[in-house]
């Protein structure tokens, strides 16, 4: 849930997550955009649903793939940018 009280954001743009278009506000991390969608951001090796954990860059459980480049980044440290396409899992 985005906090509305006392917070002003700029006009949103969209990013694509697994083919789904999601709104993002300038300055938001990819993690923030994802968590508004679902706490699940992938699957573990054994197939269990996986979420992020530390939100500060130390656990790397929030790894997502930037497409089409393929670079894998920690979502909680990486700001969303207009037009960004992201793959999970």
């Amino acid at each position: 849930m985005r906090i509305e009280r006392r917070v002003e954001r700029q006009a949103p743009f969209s990013i694509i997550v697994e083919g789904e278009t999601l709104p993002a506000y300038p300055g938001e991390t990819i993690a923030a955009v994802l968590i508004e969608r679902s706490p699940t951001i992938g699957r573990t090796a054994s197939g269990a649903a996986r979420g992020m954990f530390c939100n500060m860059g130390t656990c790397s459980l929030c790894m997502v793939t930037l497409l089409p480049e393929g670079r894998r980044v920690r979502a909680c440290l990486t700001p969303a940018e207009p037009g960004l396409e992201i793959g999970l899992g």
Binding site: M1, R2, I3, V7, E28, T29, A31, A32, I35, E36, S38, P39, T40, I41, T44, A48, A49, R50, G51, M52, F53, C54, N55, M56, C76
Partner: peptide, 24 residues
């Protein structure tokens, strides 16, 4: 390990920095 379990600090960082409450 279920999605939705965070470190306390992680939740706090969502609130104070990203201005998001990560759950209802």
């Amino acid at each position: 390990t279920l999605p939705g379990v965070y470190t306390a600090g992680g939740i706090q960082a969502f609130v104070k920095s990203q201005q998001i409450v990560p759950g209802n």
